[in-house]
Write a protein that binds this DNA or RNA. Structure first.
Lengths: 329, 329
DNA sequence: TTGTATGCGTTATCAT
DNA sequence: ATGATAACGCATACAA
């Protein structure tokens, strides 16, 4: 009477191959073992279709080959692309990805960091706007676009340089009067530097500019009001608009269209992120392109980094200009 | 000399609370226990900041509260939204999500199913175009949009009905001559029924139609050629186009624009999926909307279903029409 | 009710 | 180089 377990264990393999448990473990983990032993074990493994139980392995070795990734959502194309790239990067290194959407909710973010830690992940990559996220020191964490302080490495694109680049490109294409539109948290996260870069470039070039900056959850109508205020005799006070994201730029474009203004003839628009239609077609608007796959690679590199001592605490990646039809070529 | 473990275990909690291991386990798992014992244990837990080790728990109970989700990528807004919804559904039930992007590669898909099974997940939700995906019977699997046969439950939206609806809406808005454009695998997956529904409606309404159907990886130029063939004297042979996805519809719109054709005046276009600009703004085109969050909920329901006997093997969810500016209102 | 002891499938430390 | 054996942290059947 043979007892047929539904899923074979190392013990079963050992019995089948006529060797001991330790030998099987060595073969499985690629530790040198006598040729004939190795052959026997491998034969038994494929015969029984044995596969290692990662929970037992994780328990014993406390290395789980799993990284938790948290972003607000996958609805925003930028976040989706980011997670897509991180996933590819992790897969290439045989790591698995535990994904959490936080919905911008600080409580959920905290909850999920704790869940991830409890899950004994090997690392956490998080894009969080929570200013006082508490993290354990047991598990390496890398932050995207938000600098938490010296202990926690942060990777982001060159937001300041991107702001400068936006202003420069607009002026280069003939704009004489600029505007900066921003919606988002007041926190001193990396994207806030887009404004600083923009302002700095405007002042360096001696170009006048206007700004409209509102908090998260401010209704979009605030921007419509702003545009109306600066709309006189069928003409806007400015001829170049830098929007803090492509998403905002898209909404602005719809509004401008509704006002009868032509883009890029009457007014040029630049966004930020480098979002593309359906992920891989043309840009949704002229934009400052974040190097998403470089960001992803840097995050994964850093979170899996063994020798932390030399880890830079802030990695800043270069952005580029992408033409998307809303500026003059 | 007190030995300070970096991360406390149940044993530590038991010692701290002056009770036994079993008691702590019961408290942690919500099994009734004497009030004063419970208090002591809870005090110890929060003092030590104890959190259960899910790997030990998973090993012991072979229930991991983890579901694997596989889609081709997160670049496509439809997939991204789907994964977003599934994630919310899982989080609400305290389940974690292990995410895999398969890139349409059958080998990778197979690899990842095996990885997921090895990871001892409680279930797998997969959107795969691999006709002969092999799955173990040990772990419940739910397929989206592809029917694998009786053993594996499948959830999809009503693709056939959607195809009909598209034809009907075009005709309702005045079209006299329709076209259907499709790119994709020839496999008999659910989305193929979009064509069947479309054809059926056209014939029922006695409306003439043309079709252009090409394989995956056929260059987009094939559709440009098709449009040119049917372009005579500044006019297309048809005045209504149903595209198999919003993504294709978007490309067609660009081409039509390049040909100097006005949408929806000269020709109306309907896509399929219900993709929105930046995930939550207006539709990218008039479209047949898939009930993504219902699909997500159904998948999660079914994959976690305990009483499988009554599980339907094919769940079909209703679609709706969404106006996106490329049809006459 | 509470405590004790065993085992889940691995890895790693021992002797052999 | 290989085999026996003790943990890893938790759940649970069983004894108290």
């Amino acid at each position: 009477m043979i007892e047929r377990r539904s899923v074979p264990t190392m013990k079963d393999v050992a019995r089948e191959a006529g060797v001991s448990l330790g030998t099987v473990s060595k073969v499985v983990n690629g530790i040198p073992v006598g040729k004939e032993y190795k052959d026997k074990v491998e034969a038994a493994i494929s015969k029984l279709e044995y596969r290692i139980n990662s929970y037992a392995k994780g328990l014993k070795s406390s290395q789980t080959y799993t990284v938790a990734v948290m972003v607000p959502n996958l609805i925003s194309p930028f976040f989706a692309k980011l997670v897509d790239c991180i996933n590819r990067e992790l897969s290439a290194r045989k790591y698995r990805m535990l994904f959490y959407a936080t919905d911008y909710d600080p409580e959920q973010e905290q909850e999920m960091v704790m869940l991830a830690e409890q899950q004994k992940v090997d690392g956490i990559i998080v894009l969080s706007y929570n200013p006082n996220l508490k993290v354990s020191e047991d598990v390496p964490l890398v932050s995207i676009d938000r600098y938490f302080g010296g202990q926690i490495p942060c990777v982001s694109s060159d937001n300041y340089g991107g702001g400068r680049l936006a202003a420069e490109k607009l002026v280069e294409n003939g704009c004489k009067n600029l505007a900066f539109l921003r919606i988002g948290s007041r926190l001193t996260n990396e994207p806030n530097k887009r404004k600083d870069g923009f302002v700095s470039a405007c002042e360096a070039m001696d170009v006048p500019y206007t700004m409209k900056i509102v908090d998260d959850y401010t209704p979009y109508a605030a921007f419509e009001g702003f545009l109306q205020e600066h709309f006189h005799g069928g003409k806007l006070d400015f001829d170049g608009i830098f929007c803090v994201t492509d998403s905002l730029a898209h909404q602005i474009l719809v509004t401008l269209n509704g006002m009868g203004l032509k883009v890029p003839e009457d007014v040029q628009v630049i966004g930020f992120d480098g979002v593309r239609h359906f992920g891989d077609l043309e840009f949704t608007c002229s934009t400052i392109v974040q190097p998403v796959s470089d960001i992803a690679a840097a995050c994964v590199d850093m979170v899996l980094e063994k020798h932390k001592t030399m880890a830079a605490s802030l990695v800043c990646l270069p952005v580029t200009y992408g033409f998307g039809g809303t500026t003059r070529a």
